[in-house]
Simulated assay, not measured.
Amino acid sequence: MKILAFGASNSRESINKILAEYTAKQFENAEVELLDLNDYEMPIFSVDREKHDGIPTLALRFAEKIDASDLLIISFAEHNSTYTTAFKNIFDWISRIKDRKHFGEKPVFVLATAPGPGGGKNVVAHFEARAPFSGANIIQSFCLPKFKETFDIKKGIVDDEKNTEFQEKLSAVKNFFA
Results as ranks from 00 to 15, higher is better:
132 P>V: 06
90 I>Y: 02
161 E>G: 08
85 T>C: 03
151 F>N: 04
123 V>T: 12
5 A>H: 11
17 K>M: 06
107 P>H: 02
105 E>M: 08
89 N>P: 15
105 E>A: 07
49 R>G: 10
121 K>F: 05
54 G>F: 02
138 I>N: 01
59 A>W: 00
113 T>H: 06
146 K>R: 15
144 L>P: 03
155 K>T: 07
41 E>C: 08
162 K>Y: 15
89 N>Y: 09
165 E>T: 12
120 G>R: 01
64 E>W: 05
72 L>V: 04
48 D>A: 15
82 T>Q: 11
134 S>F: 14
102 H>K: 13
81 S>Y: 15
52 H>L: 11
50 E>V: 04
23 T>G: 12
109 F>L: 09
2 K>M: 08
134 S>H: 15
30 A>Q: 10
48 D>H: 13
176 F>E: 08
16 N>L: 06
160 D>Q: 13
164 T>W: 04
76 F>T: 15
110 V>Y: 07
101 K>W: 03
171 S>Y: 02
93 W>R: 00
144 L>R: 11
18 I>M: 08
92 D>S: 04
38 N>Y: 04
7 G>S: 03
46 S>D: 03
169 K>V: 05
101 K>N: 01
84 T>K: 14
128 E>I: 12
83 Y>Q: 02
125 A>Q: 15
3 I>A: 02
151 F>M: 09
64 E>M: 07
172 A>T: 10
135 G>N: 03
87 F>T: 00
114 A>R: 06
138 I>Q: 00
149 E>C: 05
88 K>F: 09
78 E>H: 10
19 L>A: 05
75 S>E: 09
107 P>F: 05
67 D>T: 05
142 F>L: 03
40 Y>E: 00
60 L>F: 07
160 D>I: 09
113 T>Q: 06
30 A>I: 10
80 N>S: 13
17 K>D: 06
31 E>T: 12
32 V>S: 09
167 Q>C: 12
70 D>T: 03
12 R>V: 13
138 I>M: 03
91 F>L: 12
82 T>P: 11
5 A>W: 13
175 N>I: 05
159 D>K: 15
173 V>M: 09
171 S>D: 12
145 P>E: 10
115 P>K: 07
160 D>S: 13
119 G>F: 03
119 G>A: 05
53 D>Y: 14
64 E>N: 15
165 E>N: 12
147 F>R: 01
27 F>R: 07
61 R>S: 12
137 N>R: 13
127 F>L: 02
5 A>I: 14
31 E>Y: 11
129 A>G: 07
81 S>D: 14
127 F>A: 00
143 C>M: 07
51 K>C: 04
31 E>V: 10
166 F>A: 04
112 A>L: 11
165 E>F: 09
11 S>T: 05
13 E>Q: 14
156 G>P: 08
107 P>T: 01
66 I>F: 00
